[in-house]
């Protein structure tokens, strides 16, 4: 398993559009994607889960990927969180 902490910089937080982009991209990977936020775990492949987390701007989240393509998944996940608007 590999993981990385990322700070959400999007002023609107991880709202529906970036959450949609994120979960759609993550679903393409075989690895399981887990978002740790506020001490809780959210499935990074489910938009309901990501929206339920209500991740605001400035929040630090930890993304954990576990599986055969975990590194690629993690890189992609971090990229989306840092760039998505």
């Amino acid at each position: 398993m590999t993981s990385k902490k990322v700070t959400v910089t999007n002023p609107e937080g991880l709202h529906m559009r970036p959450a949609g982009v994120f979960t759609k991209a993550m679903s393409a990977f075989e690895s399981s994607i887990n978002i740790k936020f506020n001490g809780q775990n959210y499935n990074g492949k489910s938009i309901m889960n990501v929206l339920a987390a209500g991740i605001k701007c400035g929040s630090e989240i930890e993304i954990e990927c576990d599986g055969s393509d975990e590194q690629a998944a993690l890189d992609k996940a971090v990229e989306i969180v840092q760039t998505a608007e």
Binding site: E12, G13, H15, M16, M48, N49, L51, A52, A53, G54, I55, K56, C57
Partner: peptide
Amino acid sequence: DMHLEVLSRLTVML
């Protein structure tokens, strides 16, 4: 963040 909060609550419930 109001709409994000409402979104979060709605999805948690839904």
